[in-house]
């Protein structure tokens, strides 16, 4: 009972209030209009969030699968090169079909930059994997155009399987690759190449490290040119430099000690030389 009087007076006030203002005749209309408006906002925002989540999921799957491909490629030291490259090839095809195509469909008719944060890491990891594959296979750096055409689903030929035919390829789907993503992916590639160089030393390969060393030097030099124009790459430059120095030291060691120390022991020597650059890390696991 005690709570009633103020509630009553408030109600009275409201009524009084509504009598005194001219617009108040349609108060309930305004109310429901407003809520109706907010319901449309709700639908829009929910749709946007859902899409974002779906893209994040695809992006994460792409990252994981690309990392697996990179690990697979690292196993080529056993000399089973053809086999591994073949396996990688099928894995790439699978990844493109099951992940990138749905991603491209999600992004159809959207501003490619709107959802970029949701999948940029996946794309970078993918670029790292593809460029690593290309380097092992053809000894060169993949180009942005080659990667973009992989992600352009108009150019994919149907492999005559029923499943593929149901996919509507008449529309052009594509996952847009920002040049910046490409640069960051290539920067990550240098870490993989460093690992490959060190590993090939321990398996007694004397050519590969020098070849990789030259390649890394070239990429590093080219990246230096970017300077301040690209903020994202400057962080990666530090890691890249460390990778390069590690490979350069390795090559130096091979030349100096190569004649006297057995091949498998050079790796140990390298590790002791590495104490100066203790803050060394491969960004593969980043």
């Amino acid at each position: 009972m005690a709570a009633n009087p103020p509630a009553l007076t408030l109600k009275e006030q409201n009524e009084k209030n509504s009598n005194s203002t001219p617009e108040s005749a349609s108060t309930t209309d305004i109310d429901s209009d407003l809520l109706e408006n907010f319901r449309t906002y709700q639908v829009k925002i929910d749709a946007r969030h859902d899409k974002y989540e779906r893209i994040v999921k695809l992006g994460r799957d792409i990252t994981i699968e690309s990392k697996r491909i990179i690990f697979l490629l690292h196993r080529n030291a056993s000399g089973d090169n053809e086999n591994i490259l073949g396996q990688t090839d099928t894995k790439f095809k699978e990844l493109l079909r099951t992940k990138f195509l749905p991603l491209a469909k999600e992004l159809e008719a959207e501003d490619p930059y709107q959802y970029i944060k949701a999948y940029t890491f996946g794309v970078q990891e993918f670029i790292e994997a593809v460029s690593f594959y290309f380097y092992i296979k053809e000894n060169r750096l993949v180009t942005l155009n080659e990667i973009q055409s992989m992600l352009n689903f108009k150019k994919i030929q149907n492999n005559s399987s029923e499943e593929d035919k149901t996919d509507n390829y008449e529309n052009e789907y594509l996952v847009f690759v920002r040049p910046v993503d490409f640069l960051l992916g290539v920067a990550d590639l240098t870490g993989e190449l460093m690992r490959m160089a060190i590993k090939s030393i321990s398996s007694g390969d004397v050519e590969t490290p020098f070849r990789i060393c030259n390649f890394l030097r070239e990429i590093h030099t080219n990246f230096l040119g970017f300077g301040n124009t690209c903020r994202e790459t400057s962080l990666k430059m530090l890691t890249m430099k460390q990778s390069l120095e590690k490979v350069e030291t390795a090559c130096y060691m091979m030349k100096v000690r190569g004649s006297e120390v057995p091949k498998h022991a050079i790796v140990d020597v390298l590790h002791s030389a590495d104490r100066e650059n203790t803050h060394f890390s491969s960004d593969t696991y980043g």
Partner: peptide, 13 residues
């Protein structure tokens, strides 16, 4: 109050 009621309808991240 209306604004609050409206925002309550939204599922915000």
């Amino acid at each position: 109050t209306q604004l609050d009621a409206g925002f309550r309808l939204l599922n915000l991240k």
